[in-house]
């Protein structure tokens, strides 16, 4: 019996991948993974410049994208959740569709918009980000995260009792104050909206790869670096970045859970 018949499907994929890339390098075994975790932790705690530079860019892109998504998504979600106007259902359907947008499609769309032959690229305006820049990556991330923030916020404010909103109005609130009070009452749901948005931003790889280009020292973020380092067989850095990414996600969710607890 052929030897290759005894290898597991995972190994088969690795072999095929390696042959295709003409490297024929074995995938990581358990030893490599453990060593990778140790090395990754060492890189992280020793302040490895390459690792921390990537973390820095990731934090910049994620932070800016989340902030913009919150500024756009929370008010829009609140308005869609609380007001009735012709075309609202159509907009809601578009938002729900947007919540499931494949990131690579977003990447492609943003790429086509910003490229020199695209719709916005030739305008050469300062507010239009250029391809293969951090700003372009932020733009793509915002397109991915905004529908999630809008959708979750819409649902959260919709769950605030209409009687409470009526009572707030009756106590003399302006429309804006009513909106603010409703958002405050729905704050746990809004927090979930932000966590959902951040989750999509942190885990995203396809769109940022397309519009950022994964340029070393400039647009390389954790997800794109993990992809690259894995392809290179440089598992230590990939695992180190993976640990940081997971750790960040855990800390953010832990903080959110704490905040939710306080809000109760």
């Amino acid at each position: 019996m052929d030897e290759h018949l005894h290898i597991c499907p995972y190994q088969s994929i690795q072999v095929i991948f390696a042959v295709r890339n003409r490297h024929f390098k074995a995938g990581p075994g358990l030893e490599t993974i453990i060593s990778g975790i140790i090395q990754g932790l060492k890189l992280f705690f020793s302040g490895d410049p390459a690792l921390w530079q990537i973390i820095g860019v990731s934090a910049q892109v994620s932070g800016a994208a989340l902030l913009l998504s919150a500024l756009l998504g929370i008010p829009l979600g609140a308005v869609l959740g609380l007001t009735r106007f012709p075309g609202r259902r159509m907009i809601q359907a578009l938002v729900y569709t947007g919540m499931g947008l494949p990131p690579v499609v977003v990447g492609l769309a943003v790429y086509l918009l910003l490229s020199n032959n695209g719709l916005l690229g030739p305008l050469q305006q300062t507010w239009i980000p250029k391809l293969f820049t951090v700003e372009a990556m932020i733009a793509a991330q915002v397109v991915i995260a905004v529908p999630l923030v809008v959708g979750y916020t819409m649902s959260a404010v919709g769950e605030v009792s209409p009687n409470l909103r009526l009572q707030v109005r009756s106590l003399g609130a302006t429309r804006l104050q009513t909106l603010g009070a409703t958002l405050w009452e729905a704050r746990r749901g809004v927090l979930v909206a932000l966590i959902g948005g951040l989750g999509s931003i942190l885990s995203e790889v396809g769109a940022v790869m397309m519009v950022g280009g994964n340029i070393d020292g400039s647009t390389r973020v954790m997800t794109t670096a993990i992809l690259l380092e894995t392809r290179r067989g440089n598992f230590e850095l990939a695992i180190g970045l993976g640990i940081v990414l997971l750790g960040m996600a855990f800390l953010i969710n832990l903080s959110a859970a704490q905040l939710q607890g306080k809000g109760h």
């Binding site: 009792s161 009687n163 409470l164 009526l166 009572q167 707030v168 009756s170 009070a181 405050w184 009452e185 809000g263």
Partner: peptide
């Protein structure tokens, strides 16, 4: 003042 007191959190 409504029948069901709609209190804020």
């Amino acid at each position: 003042v409504f029948q069901n007191p709609a209190l804020l959190s």
